[in-house]
């Protein structure tokens, strides 16, 4: 028995090594196979290497599609590499981009640290690096040209500003309940912070309850039910850190016998399709966009850089804010 087990282990280990070897070899192939015609790049046609984090969510998939098609639509050549959430894959991909002498590297880092060496290599090779969606945490900010991504704090500020404008002329206190995202997540922390920044300047706006709804519909509904039971008619405004929680809360408000959108003003973030449906039905007032489709803006930035313009180190994605009145018209055009 023991001998058999040992033999099995040896065989298993060998298999593992073979599989791993196979994996890594396919990866390098994947990274290099799109090369070839890079040499004939004229002054306006660029070769752009794009190293994406992975494909972990719908948002990310929409993001990848947008960047890929924006680059190819603008007539540039794309070399794409999916890191499958692994830093080593990403470092390998960037090295292969450098070896292929691409004109620019677009890069969504999996983690914030550990990329100094490879980014220095890119800098030494004279290749500009554009960070998208996620930032890195280095001292030396000359290693990249700019960071383009959603600014969650800004999203909170936008939501708050809309509310202040909407409630202009209303006397007395305005009571707000807040549905936070998953505790500790960046969008939850930042959207709360941005909203509170603006609210601090307007003492008649009071956040009376704030609780996590985990970014899900079911939790959003459950928490809102409890809010309604304890504060009921006093609630004037609901601010949810994403649209899904807002949609769940809308159901709770309806079941409680109040009219969402009228008795309670409903604010969401993300601008997903469901929010547009709710707004078209008059049950939600506004949603702040968190846009994954920033491919075209990215390509503009890259082109601006090559045209000699200096870019800010931090650029926010162009994000709109959509209200009830626009919803019906825009609903058919929403992609996600």
């Amino acid at each position: 028995m023991v001998i058999q087990l040992k033999r099995f282990r040896v065989v298993f280990l060998m298999l593992l090594i073979i599989v791993l070897a196979a994996c890594s070899s396919t990866n390098t192939e994947g990274n290099t196979n799109s090369g070839g015609e890079g040499g004939e790049a004229s002054s306006d046609k660029l070769v752009i290497g794009f190293s994406q984090v992975g494909a972990e969510s719908e948002w990310r998939t929409a993001n990848t599609k947008s960047i890929k098609s924006a680059i190819t639509d603008a007539g540039h050549e794309l070399k794409f590499s999916d890191a499958q959430q692994k830093q080593e894959n990403q470092i390998k991909a960037i090295r292969s981009f450098i070896a292929q002498k691409v004109d620019a590297i677009v890069f969504s880092p999996v983690v914030e640290t550990g990329f100094e060496t490879v980014l220095k290599e890119a800098k030494d090779a004279g290749i500009p690096v554009f960070l998208v969606d996620r930032a890195v945490d280095f001292e030396d900010d000359t290693l990249w040209v700019t960071f383009l991504g959603s600014d969650f704090v800004e999203e909170g500020i936008k939501a708050a500003n809309w509310l202040v404008e909407e409630m202009e002329g209303v006397d007395g206190d305005i009571n707000i309940v807040e549905l936070q995202g998953t505790v500790g997540s960046a969008p939850a922390i930042d959207r709360k912070e941005g909203f509170e920044q603006v609210m601090a300047e307007h003492p008649n706006f009071r956040i009376i309850k704030s609780q996590s709804g985990d970014f899900t519909r079911a939790k959003g509904k459950e928490v809102m039910e409890a809010f309604l039971k304890s504060d009921g008619e006093n609630i004037d405004v609901l601010y949810a850190h994403n649209d899904d929680m807002a949609i769940g809360a809308i159901q709770a408000i309806e079941e409680y016998g109040l009219k969402p959108g009228e008795d309670i003003t409903v604010i969401g973030v993300d601008a997903v399709k469901g929010a547009f449906e709710a707004m078209a039905a008059g049950k939600m007032n506004v949603t702040v966009e968190c846009n994954p489709l920033f491919g075209p803006q990215l390509v503009e930035l890259i082109e601006a850089h090559f045209a000699g313009e200096t870019l800010d180190k931090r650029i926010s994605v162009e994000e709109g804010i959509y209200t009830m009145d626009q919803a019906k018209e825009l609903l058919p055009t929403r992609k996600y």
Partner: peptide
């Protein structure tokens, strides 16, 4: 317990 935590306003970090 869950409903209580929601309605008496315990901060979510300590839930």
């Amino acid at each position: 317990l869950t409903t209580t935590i929601y309605s008496i306003g315990i901060p979510p970090e300590t839930n």
